[in-house]
């Protein structure tokens, strides 16, 4: 480990035994790979700068009403689909872990089906169910023509939410299984019922395992919502494509959409990072550095390194 040596400022003499001053190993391979990587990057940037891209169109339309409306719909769809996914996932996980063979096999079948077919196919199937059902008839409660009932929004929501539930079920199951069996026994020995044990003892402890992959799923969902442009729902990608066709800048509008997706996923990633950090409390003795602290540490070690190499040269 050379870290400790690096961190000792070169100009302050150590109080104890003399610190080792050695010429560091030169990693010539690293220089070569850095040069190659930078050359490739420059090439890519150059290629794009030579393309016939009207960069000015992107800021022009960045806060266009249709784009902002698309962003709002994308966010709404992400949040609602995740709600369906999480609620459904918890139910499926509990069903799969239950001792009742009927409910556990139904849950198994659901997960098998929804995880095993592409979400794009599921979306198109939901969209086209009107070909099979003319009416929706829920007895005395609700009756309507299928095409009126199954709006693009509902299609998108069901398609994404039900698919997500299958993935969330596995995440929740892993969380529930991670809680020590002694916790359930202790709770039962105190006379607590199954459902109280689950709600008060098991689930709060399972959350630590469930939250990080769920954050991942949210980011995934945000990107997957772009698929629902195929069922005529005007979310971000569809709005960008529509503008692209009318304004004569289709590629530029795709870049614009990509920029918005990047922006939104970045915000979610930051949120996820701090949420994970929050749930790590109590389980780990020292919290991991925040990104800001990491950057600070890196910059410091860089300046120290250049100082120490300057000394030895």
């Amino acid at each position: 480990m050379t870290v400790d040596i690096d961190k000792t400022p070169a100009d302050t003499p150590p109080a104890g035994p003399e610190a080792i001053k050695a010429i560091p190993v030169r990693h010539y391979g690293r220089y070569v790979s850095a040069v190659v990587a930078i050359a490739l990057l420059v090439g890519v940037v150059y290629a794009f700068s030579q393309g016939k891209i009207n960069w000015g169109a992107i800021p022009d339309y960045f806060f266009d009403d249709r784009i902002l409306d698309g962003v709002g719909k994308t966010l709404l769809l992400t949040v609602l689909s995740m709600v369906i996914g999480i609620v459904g996932g918890v139910m499926l996980a509990v069903m799969r872990l239950s001792k009742n063979p009927v409910t556990s096999s139904i849950a198994w079948f659901y997960i098998w089906f929804f995880r095993g077919t592409p979400v794009l196919v599921q979306l198109i199937v939901w969209f086209n169910l009107g070909l099979v059902f003319e009416y929706i008839n829920l007895g005395p409660f609700y009756k309507d023509e299928w095409s009126d009932f199954m709006t693009p929004f509902l299609t998108a929501l069901l398609g994404l939410g039900l698919n997500e539930a299958a993935y969330m079920a596995e995440i929740c199951r892993a969380g529930l299984l991670s809680v020590d069996e002694g916790q359930t026994e202790a709770s039962h020995a105190l006379g607590m019922s199954h459902s109280k044990t689950l709600r008060r003892i098991v689930i709060p402890q399972a959350m630590r395992v469930i939250v990080p992959p769920t954050g991942n799923e949210v980011i995934n969902m945000l990107k997957t919502t772009s698929l629902v442009s195929v069922v005529q729902y005007p979310e971000l990608l569809r709005a960008a494509q529509d503008i692209g066709q009318t304004s004569g800048a289709p590629a530029e509008m795709l870049f614009l959409a990509a920029a918005w997706y990047l922006l939104m996923t970045s915000v979610f990633s930051i949120g996820q990072y701090y949420l994970e950090r929050y749930y790590a409390r109590g389980s780990s003795r020292s919290l991991p550095d925040t990104p800001f602290q990491k950057i600070k540490a890196n910059v410091l070690s860089l300046s120290n390194r250049s100082a120490s190499t300057g000394d030895t040269a």
């Binding site: 020590d180 002694g182 202790a186 020995a189 105190l190 006379g191 019922s193 199954h194 003892i201 109590g282």
Partner: peptide, 24 residues
Amino acid sequence: KDSEVAVKRRDIGMVFQRFNLFPH
């Protein structure tokens, strides 16, 4: 029934080798 067993368990305290306190 599970609920009847739970009622009986109220009157019996148990202390485990590995404590099994609720960590949260």
